[in-house]
Computed example of a mutant assay.
Amino acid sequence: MSRVVLASTSPFRRALLDRLGLVYEAVPPVFEEIAPPGLSPLACAVLFAEGKALSLAHAHADAVIIGADQALDVDGELLRKPATLDEAAEQLDRLAGRAHALHTAVAVQAPPGLRDVSCAQRMVSEVVTVELRVRPLSRAQIRRYVELDRPIGSAGGYLFEKHGAWLFDEVRHADETAIVGLPLVPLCRLLRGFGIDPLDVRAGG
Rank of each mutant, 00 (worst) to 15 (best):
A110Y: 09
L148Q: 07
Y158C: 13
K81F: 02
V128N: 02
D86M: 10
G76I: 06
L167K: 06
R98N: 07
Q109K: 13
T129S: 13
L92P: 03
H173C: 14
D149K: 01
D116N: 15
R133K: 14
S118L: 13
D75L: 04
L102G: 01
H100T: 08
G76A: 04
L92N: 09
I152F: 02
G97T: 06
G113R: 03
V124H: 12
V180A: 01
E147C: 12
S118A: 14
C119E: 15
G153H: 11
I142H: 08
P151S: 01
H163E: 15
H173V: 12
S118P: 11
W166D: 15
S154G: 11
G157Q: 03
Y158V: 01
R80P: 12
L95R: 13
Q91W: 09
Q91R: 15
D175C: 09
E176M: 10
Q141P: 02
W166F: 15
A83W: 09
L78N: 07
L159K: 15
S138E: 06
A120E: 14
C119N: 11
L167N: 09
G157C: 03
A89G: 06
G164H: 02
K81A: 01
L137Q: 02
K162I: 08
R150I: 01
K162M: 13
L167D: 12
H163R: 15
V106W: 00
A105V: 09
A120N: 08
F160N: 12
R144W: 11
A101Y: 11
V130G: 13
L159W: 01
A107H: 06
T104R: 01
V180F: 01
A178P: 05
A89H: 02
V108G: 00
E87K: 11
A120L: 12
L102E: 01
R139G: 10
T177S: 15
A83T: 14
G97Q: 07
K162Y: 05
Q141L: 06
G153Y: 07
A101C: 14
P82V: 03
L79E: 11
I142Y: 04
I142F: 04
R144K: 11
D86P: 06
A99N: 09
E131N: 10
D175W: 04
D149I: 00
V134H: 09
Q91C: 10
P136H: 09
K162F: 11
L79M: 13
P112R: 04
A101D: 10
R150Y: 06
T104F: 03
T104I: 05
V117P: 00
S125W: 06
V128M: 07
Y145D: 10
V124M: 14
V124C: 08
G113A: 00
I179D: 07
A174S: 12
